[in-house]
């Protein structure tokens, strides 16, 4: 568990720091993805989330879901390429879960990765996570989660 400027950034997940998304390899071979606590803090209260439909294939760093907060709309980019095999239906009635539990019940889609080994090699995990996010937060002029 890592905390960076008050934002919870668990170090057992895989991150694309640039696009501010996380990935978790599940026991069944699928990959769960979502927004980081930092991304949720930048966005503010999320009011809508529309994931890509099950069965759609998504290229690396292309939109896996679209979120809206404070009248801003933007993509959540897939940290791995693959096919969407499940979406979190609960987000349509409770999109605020993305802010309150970004790594748990705020997950967005599960993908069947096309090439986990190659894609995950470009992601950051473990001890390097905290420093990578601290650098990004400083570059973004970010004061901190809850600041």
């Amino acid at each position: 568990m890592a905390s960076v400027k008050g934002c919870n950034i668990p170090d057992d997940l895989y991150y694309n720091v640039e696009t501010n998304v996380w990935a978790r390899k599940e026991g069944d071979g699928t990959v769960t993805i979502g927004m980081t606590a930092y991304a949720a803090a930048l966005a503010g209260q999320v009011v809508s989330c529309t994931p890509k439909k099950v069965g759609r294939s998504v290229d690396l760093n292309k939109s896996a879901a679209t979120v809206e907060s404070g009248k801003w709309v933007g993509p959540v980019k897939a940290p791995v390429s693959g096919e969407v095999v499940a979406i979190n239906d609960a987000l349509s009635s409770a999109p605020g879960t993305i802010n309150s539990d970004p790594y748990g019940s705020g997950w967005m889609v599960k993908m069947k990765p096309a090439n986990w080994d190659a894609d995950s090699a470009a992601l950051i995990t473990g001890g390097a996570v905290a420093a990578a996010f601290e650098t990004k937060m400083n570059a973004d002029g970010f004061a901190g989660c809850g600041a």
Binding site: G44, G70, K71, W72, G141, F142
Partner: peptide, 14 residues
């Protein structure tokens, strides 16, 4: 571009 703005906080930008 976000670098035009000096912040990534979407509420501050709007």
């Amino acid at each position: 571009h976000k670098r035009d703005l000096g912040t990534a906080d979407m509420q501050v930008i709007s």
